[in-house]
């Protein structure tokens, strides 16, 4: 980590991270590719999914392929109601001995958009049970307020549908969320497609980004891991630096006075 980030560490639920990039472990073409991309990204936390153990064949432990220094964040992907999400979170906690959970309650198979109502319901139960709940939800300020009010340490609005790579579809919503919730931890989760999308999220004031497909489906996942690392850093620095105001008309950089005539 370079000096410019020294006083800008990412703190989440009592843990301090150098990296503001959280990445997934799905869709990689090989374990080697995943490991190289993870390393390149500089991420310190990775998401994993809970799944039935196959009974018909021997399987290797997927977790053995993860850097042991990385923090593992289990998710509740594939859950379509609060009951399933709660059960999945409890199983994940038992298996991994972690209270951290990325809460994901999906409302629709085609869009994978979140069911905010079910998400809030599940979040309430899990927070009461001592989980550190990181909820994926629509980029909606009111929902963010509700999730924070019940005790989520951060909110994770989407930028675009999961795996779409569309980039930030509604920058105004993220900007409003940032302005109205200046002290909240906002982690953009889902929808980033390439490095510029990540930079935009950070420039809008996100504290961190969680992404999977943008790196895993890149033609060269390792290189995209590097790109995302730098994009997140650049976007963060630009946000902190404060961008110049946009103007409709030009504003000369060189003095007009004194030019030869």
């Amino acid at each position: 980590m370079t000096d410019i980030f020294k006083n800008d560490l990412f703190e989440l639920a009592g843990k301090v991270f150098d990296s503001r990039l959280i990445i997934g472990t799905g869709k990689y073409r090989s374990f080697k590719e995943m490991q190289d991309a993870h390393k390149a990204s500089g991420a310190e936390m990775v998401t994993v999914a809970v799944n039935r153990v196959p009974l018909d064949r021997k399987v290797e432990s997927f977790l053995d392929y993860l850097d042991p220094n990385m923090m593992i964040l289990p998710n509740t992907a594939g859950c379509y109601d609060s009951e399933h999400a709660i059960r999945t979170a409890r199983l994940a906690r038992e298996a991994l001995e972690t209270d951290w959970i990325k809460l994901e309650v999906i409302g629709d198979q085609t869009t994978l958009l979140p069911d905010n109502e079910q998400t809030l319901e599940a979040a309430k139960v899990l927070v009461d049970e001592g989980f550190i709940v990181l909820p994926y939800f629509s980029d909606d300020l009111i929902m963010a307020k509700k999730l924070l009010a019940i005790g989520c340490p951060a909110v994770m609005p989407l930028a675009a549908p999961i795996g779409s790579g569309l980039g930030v579809q509604n920058p105004a919503n993220l900007r409003i969320m940032r302005e109205q919730l200046p002290d909240a931890i906002i982690i953009v989760d889902a929808g980033v497609g390439t490095a510029s999308d990540a930079a935009i999220c950070m420039e809008l004031g996100a504290d961190a980004i969680l992404m999977n497909t943008a790196i895993a489906e890149a033609e060269n996942a390792e290189q995209m891991g590097h790109a995302m690392k730098f994009a997140v850093q650049a976007g963060r620095l630009a946000y902190r630096a404060g961008r110049m105001p946009k103007r409709l008309y030009a504003s000369a950089s060189s003095p007009i006075e004194g030019a030869i005539k």
Partner: peptide, 10 residues
């Protein structure tokens, strides 16, 4: 009975 483990995911 459900027996779970972990797989790649986002």
């Amino acid at each position: 009975i459900e027996i779970i483990h972990f797989v790649g995911g986002g």
